[in-house]
Design a protein around this nucleic acid. Sequence first.
DNA 1: AAGACGTGGGC
DNA 2: TGCCCAAGTCT
Length: 369
Amino acid sequence: MKELTYIEDFLIQQFQDDLINWFEKEQRDLPWRADQDPYKVWVSEIMLQQTRVDTVIPYFNNFIAQFPSIEALAHADEEKVLKAWEGLGYYSRVRNLQSAVKEVHESYGGIVPNTPSEISKLKGIGPYTTGSILSIAYGIPEPAVDGNVMRVLSRILSIWDDIAKPKTRKVFEVIIREIISKENPSFFNQGLMELGAIVCTPTSPSCLLCPVREHCKSYMEGTQAELPVKTKKNSTKEVPIVVGVLVTNDNKILIHKRPDSGLLARLWEFPNVEVLTDVKTPKVVLQEFIKDSYHTTAHIEELLGAFQHVFSHLTWNMTVYEGRIENEITENERVKLVSIEELSQYAFSVSHQKIWKQFQEKMGSQLLS
DNA sequence: AAGACGTGGGC
DNA sequence: TGCCCAAGTCT
């Protein structure tokens, strides 16, 4: 295997010892490190996907307090689960997590499986999460190759493959299988990630503080700032959206649940529609949308504001109006009229939370509950 | 393989 | 301000 030419003169045993000793001494005190409960390891690994540690900590504590076990999450109301994830992003993660937890509860007697083939069949568990759960919760020497690991190893071994390419992950998995500690795969994998998080950072790595500096080829060559090679993605598309915060005569707010798949699936939001024309004004587009969707006439009062919301792959250019509607809307699974207090029980995306905040600031005391 | 899928922080 | 990033997975 040509990948292994990277480690022909690599001191594996000494590298493992240096890395693991450093991790034992310097690891951060994080809530998911209190024990190795496979369920908690699992929840933390899902939350940490593409998400910063500091962001995850309060979500993790709250989530485990509400859903402390496989059984608790398996039986939980999806609405409450989504609410516990509100603001974390990538919401399909939590729907897949609950779905997989139900599968473990029903098909594995509530025990997280400990083989790569079984665990990787669960929804939301890909190659990285398979390796992280198996190594951290069960001490099984499987590679857990994430962005940190690719960055750290590309520097240590001077690997110039583009880490943005899907196939590059496999190169690192082959190498990890050769160099992973069979005695302590948990600390080996976590050590590599921790090193990437606090020492071998994307920009300006702290090489002088690095416990494995003497093993690092790019440090020897002075190329650590050029690695890893990572091609960048395309810029995002802009989508104009018009939104209405609509209040009934008895001060209820109209909210709408998003579809079961796609962007922000199953989250709640204020009525909105993409503005596909530049002939009609956003206000007119909104009025027609409300008439078609809810069979009621809205009296759009004034502009609440206009702002941008940037996602990873697109940007919403939002125009937000406030308005009044007659109290004759038929509620159903996806359309509800809620009081101000009730509204806080529903999970909203951040963009619509911002809208609600603006609305409350503007309306202030006018809306008494 | 490449694009969908969120958000907040750092420079 | 704008761009890149942060413990990926699914289609």
